[in-house]
Simulated scan of single mutants.
Amino acid sequence: MGVENIYRDFAYIYDKLMYDVDYKEWADYIEKIFQEYEVKPSLIADLGCGTGNFCVEMDKKGYEMIGIDSSLDMLNCAKKKSEGRNILYLNQDMTDFELYGTVDAIVSLMDSINYLTYIKDIKKLLKLVKNYLNPGGLFIFDINTPYKFKNILKDNVFYDVSDEITYVWQNNFDSKRKICEFDITFFVKEGQYYNRYDEVHYERCYEIEELKKVIVSSGMTLVNVYDSMTLNRPLPKSERVFFVCKNGG
């Protein structure tokens, strides 16, 4: 399991499903973290960039962006919305990416890390991050928390009905394997008819302490862990947390 080949038809309706995500808010938050630690990155890599929304928002702020994703369909969508902008997109796996040089900061957002269903893949990613991140540079990523998997996502069904697209999202969380299966069915209006698309995605539930240990063992410095979109410590019922790591002390 992993992130390869799971965003085929899904790529082209991804933005419609993510209509409620404020990417400007995400960009403002990441910039706030930069300011908190008095770093001024110029070149930033976005691992698991998807359809490029975050890259575009950061480009608007004047940052030079590299977007990396294993889905060619996602990147095709990203390139279309980035026309006229100087954003480099690379079709690479986030656990096996290769850059032309080092960067000032690296991010991996929207629970992309949860899509890495083996701890060995996170170790590979951290090794690459350390290799391509300039000394003192920050690596920022977020995860869906164990609380969210066990209490919000677990065995629940979500749906949304509209004229253009309807989806049914059914979850199955295996607490022993710590794997959540997302079984998603879409009905997308194309002309007079609706076409059906089916996707199955997987995310792994990682404990915060588990990831802390992996970060430290990678040689990176764990700077802080924050509750979603804040600079506050996580709460017992936090559904998303952000990790801030530094390359060096």
Rank of each mutant, 00 (worst) to 15 (best):
E4Q: 06
N5V: 11
Y7S: 06
R8K: 15
D9H: 14
D9G: 08
Y12I: 02
I13Y: 13
M18A: 13
Y23D: 00
Y23H: 04
K24P: 00
E25D: 05
A27Y: 01
D28H: 00
K32C: 04
I33Q: 04
Q35E: 13
E38I: 05
V39K: 07
S42D: 12
I44H: 01
I44Q: 02
L47D: 03
G48H: 04
G48L: 08
C49K: 02
T51N: 11
T51I: 10
N53M: 13
V56T: 12
E57M: 09
E57F: 06
E57I: 03
K61I: 07
G62A: 06
Y63E: 05
E64F: 02
I66H: 03
D69F: 10
L72R: 10
D73C: 08
M74S: 06
L75P: 07
C77D: 09
A78F: 11
A78D: 07
K79E: 15
K80T: 10
K81I: 11
G84E: 10
R85D: 03
R85P: 02
L88K: 13
Y89T: 03
Q92R: 14
D93S: 15
D93T: 10
M94N: 10
E98G: 06
T102W: 06
D104F: 09
V107C: 12
S108H: 05
L109P: 00
M110W: 11
D111Y: 09
S112K: 03
N114D: 08
N114E: 09
Y115G: 14
I119W: 02
K120D: 14
K123T: 12
L125K: 08
L128C: 09
V129R: 00
V129H: 00
N131K: 15
L133A: 00
L133H: 00
N134E: 15
P135D: 15
G136P: 07
G137T: 02
L138E: 07
D142R: 01
I143T: 07
F149W: 01
F149D: 02
K150V: 08
I152V: 15
L153I: 15
D155R: 00
V157R: 01
D160W: 09
V161Q: 08
E164S: 14
I165R: 01
T166N: 12
Y167L: 00
V168P: 00
N172Y: 15
F173E: 04
S175Y: 13
K176R: 14
C180S: 13
C180R: 02
D183Y: 12
I184M: 13
I184R: 02
I184G: 12
F187S: 09
V188N: 10
G191F: 13
G191I: 06
Y193I: 15
Y194R: 09
N195W: 09
R196E: 14
D198P: 05
E199H: 15
H201C: 06
E207S: 11
E207M: 07
E209I: 08
K212P: 07
V216W: 03
S218G: 02
G219Y: 06
M220A: 12
M220G: 04
V223F: 12
V223E: 15
Y226D: 08
Y226P: 08
D227W: 08
D227S: 11
T230G: 13
L231T: 13
R233C: 01
R233T: 07
R233D: 11
P236L: 08
F243A: 01
F243N: 00
C245W: 04
C245A: 12
G249D: 13
G249Y: 11
